[in-house]
């Protein structure tokens, strides 16, 4: 990866509406490699910067299916294949008694997939990220809203992008070092 000394330019906003408007403008302007940072989820913000599908539901569904099939097979394998016991002539594959555990494992594996899927897609845990180099960024978890256009964006130009970010009613534009 071509590492420039600058990670990107960060614009600060005081409220989510201004950030949302700024993000929409930036997207319309043609910027693609950007991200916004907020202390709480802002509706429509991810869409405004061109991110639509989360991918989470599919991951959870796959987890659920693995849990369901695996949970049933676990019991089937134990009572039919590995250690069959004849209990009063009842069928070895007494499936109704397998349902509670199948259900529990479906939920368990789906929930684990939700957690680890979320972390993996978000690339967390991440001990270092350039945005934290900005002193003011600690406010992103409190009461400030940030929009960062990355230097790797093809349209990025130190001067022009700075002027653009200043024009979208931001409170200040800061350079983010690597």
């Amino acid at each position: 990866m071509n590492r420039t000394p600058v990670y990107g330019l960060m614009a600060e906003f005081t409220n989510p509406e201004a950030l949302l408007a700024g993000a929409r403008r930036a997207y319309a302007e043609g910027f693609r490699r950007m991200d916004a940072f907020t202390p709480f989820p802002v509706e429509g913000l991810a869409e405004a910067i061109g991110f639509h599908k989360t991918g989470i539901p599919l991951i959870v569904l796959i987890g659920g299916i693995i849990g369901c099939v695996g949970g049933f097979y676990l019991q089937y394998w134990i009572s039919v294949i590995d250690y069959p016991i004849n209990v009063g002539g009842r069928p070895l594959n007494s499936w109704p008694s397998f349902i509670p555990v199948t259900f529990e494992l479906t939920v368990l594996i789906a929930a684990l997939f939700a957690l680890f899927g979320l972390l993996a897609l978000n690339r967390l845990p991440m001990p270092y990220h350039p945005v934290f180099n900005l002193e003011r960024f600690e406010l992103a978890s409190r009461n400030r809203f940030f929009l960062c256009i990355e230097a790797t964006d093809p349209k990025f130009d130190d001067e022009a992008t700075r002027r653009f970010l200043e024009s979208v009613k931001s409170q200040g534009v800061y350079q983010v070092e690597h």
Partner: peptide
Amino acid sequence: MGWRGSAIHWHRYEMAYLL
């Protein structure tokens, strides 16, 4: 774990939390 409040992260987060 390095949570930085990214809009994309929040988007996935809300979906995962709902599920």
